[in-house]
Write a protein that binds this DNA or RNA. Structure first.
Length: 480
RNA sequence: GGCGCCGUACCCAAGCGGUAAGGGAGAGGUCUGCAAAACCUUCAUGCAUCGGUUCGAUUCCGAUCGGCGCCUCCA
């Protein structure tokens, strides 16, 4: 049936057809590195990762470009705000680039822990200022810009389709109700392409440009870098839902004004993670990081599982109850995989031999087809997860077949199922031998009906973190 | 003030015109000296409320109540 994606541009579910058959150019808005990414931000990157994995699963060759916003940007729309990276740098007595590098590293560490694949190309704004200047020059040559009070603005009035994707009705919006308007603008929706006038004497990052020494406006980096690496027209652009109205609207305006062509075909936006009191906000300083969850005893993949349990276009309510549920689910999932793995692995062999997907039993094939249908239906990871559970619990399906199907599904889900190994396989052989000896003693005690001694041995091992489980085939043990 | 989204069992969460996926928790069972684990079974005549359209609505329309987002940097 083929992949269908919900395109914000038009607000409809559309069949996905790439510009070049078999290839996908994808640009995902990356982090602004002046602080740690919080778990709400991370939802966006897990979503982008799921999209990339799904495209690859469906056979596309994906070029995934992600930007790193390491140019400081003002917290306000005009010259009155604070530059967030500069502010952090001053507080930490570090250079702006040190701060950016530090949080960028932290970001990729979190990504790795969440099993997010590294994008094909990661590009820093500070290394592409020349490309931005070139793009702005094209806009200027075409008459889309004007200078006012030292800043170069994009003139929204010259771009008739402004706000089309966001379905903005300019005359109905009450711009300025919450924030004071920049008096230099001809139109409230005009935005800065290049700043030369900053209230900061010590603006750390400045570049020479035809409009004077200064630094680029926020939106231009995405237009310039995406076009550099993906061409003037490409397939998918994704980001958080908050970017629809301003950031992406402005990106579209400046990109299409410069080239005169449609820029991006499909726009995908993920909804927010919601806390009890509303969304998490980086600038408010009140947020949870992945490390907070790790410190509380959760595995980063517990959080990934939690995210996959909701559709990317629905708001998801975060709570520790829900995370506990995800954690328990994932533990059970891993236990199930391990148990199937044991069943599918012949004695004396380290890893099971899995059948080719084409050779799977009909029940497994049916699950895989349902899984693919779920993914193709606008990335329905909740339904995909249901199919994963389904195949793992399919009765009368040989273990190797269930595993092969589950591992295939996990190429999209990214839960690390294939990498699951029993922790016990890594213990010191001497300790293992000792445990086996105690188990033998306990077996003898049990046979002699000396249950208090048998239970004593079990409790003794339990205190050392070793759990005994009696089964039909004798006693097995595992680490707590 | 304008625009948009959402309200499904104890909890999280799919479905979005044809009679409620999945997970967690709970309950019962199999196994067991006990325990644990595992597995099996079970768990919404009903999808915020009230009207309407329809042969038929959780799904469409309207109203009401409640929650959230955007119009400001923001995932």
């Amino acid at each position: 049936m083929g992949l269908r994606l919900f395109n914000t541009y038009g607000r409809t579910l559309e069949d996905f057809v790439p510009r070049t058959s078999g290839k996908v150019g994808f640009y995902g808005c990356g982090p602004t590195v002046y602080n740690f990414a919080h778990i709400g931000n991370l939802r966006a990157y897990v979503f982008e990762d799921t999209l990339v994995r799904a495209l690859e699963y469906l056979g596309y060759d994906v070029t995934h470009v992600m930007n790193i916003t390491d140019v400081g940007h003002l917290s306000g729309d005009d010259d009155t705000g604070e530059d967030k990276i500069v502010k952090t740098a001053q507080e930490r007595h570090k250079s702006v680039l040190e701060v950016a590098q530090y949080y960028s590293d932290a970001f990729f560490k979190d990504s790795g822990r969440l099993n997010i694949k590294r994008p094909t190309i990661v590009c820093k704004a500070t290394e592409h200022v020349g490309d931005m200047i070139e793009l702005i020059k094209r806009l200027e040559a075409k008459g889309f810009t004007y200078m006012a009070a030292g800043n170069l603005y994009f003139d929204v009035a010259k771009f008739p389709d402004y706000g089309k994707m966001a379905m903005l009705k300019l005359e109905e919006l009450q711009a300025g109700t919450r924030v004071e308007l920049d008096q230099n603008k001809r139109n409230p929706f005009d935005f800065v392409l290049w700043f030369t006038k900053s209230k900061f004497e010590d603006q750390a990052l400045q570049w020479d440009s035809p409009w004077g020494r200064g630094y680029p406006g926020w939106h231009i980096e995405c237009s310039a870098m995406s076009m550099k690496y993906l061409g003037e027209q490409f397939d998918i652009h994704a980001g958080g839902i908050d970017h629809i109205q301003v950031h992406h609207t402005n990106e579209i305006a400046q990109s299409e004004a410069a080239t005169g062509k449609q820029w991006v075909r499909y726009w995908l936006h993920n909804e927010f993670l919601i806390m009890d009191k509303g969304k998490m906000s980086k600038s408010s300083g009140n947020f949870l990081t992945l490390q907070t969850l790790v410190d509380a005893g959760y595995d980063p993949l517990d959080y990934r599982y939690f995210l996959l349990g909701g559709h990317y276009r629905s708001q998801l309510q975060f709570s520790y109850d829900a995370l506990d549920s995800a954690k328990a689910s994932r533990r059970s999932l891993n236990e199930r995989v391990l148990s199937l793995r044991d069943n599918a692995t012949p004695e004396g062999v380290r890893a099971p031999a899995l059948p080719a997907l084409s050779a799977l039993a009909p029940a497994a094939i049916a699950r895989l087809e349902a899984f693919k249908a779920a993914i193709e239906d606008d990335l329905s990871t909740p339904r995909a997860l249901a199919e994963l559970w389904g195949v793992l619990r399919e009765q009368k399906l040989p273990a190797a077949h269930a595993l092969a199907a589950a591992f295939d599904m996990d190429r999209v889900l990214g839960l690390g199922l294939a990498g699951q190994e029993r922790k016990e396989s890594g213990v010191d052989p001497a300790l293992a031998a000792e445990i086996e000896e105690l188990i033998a003693q306990r077996a003898a005690a049990k046979k002699a009906k000396d249950f208090s001694k048998a239970d004593g041995i079990r409790n003794q091992l339990k205190e050392r973190g070793v759990l005994l489980e009696d089964g039909p085939a004798g006693t097995s043990w595992k680490l707590a």
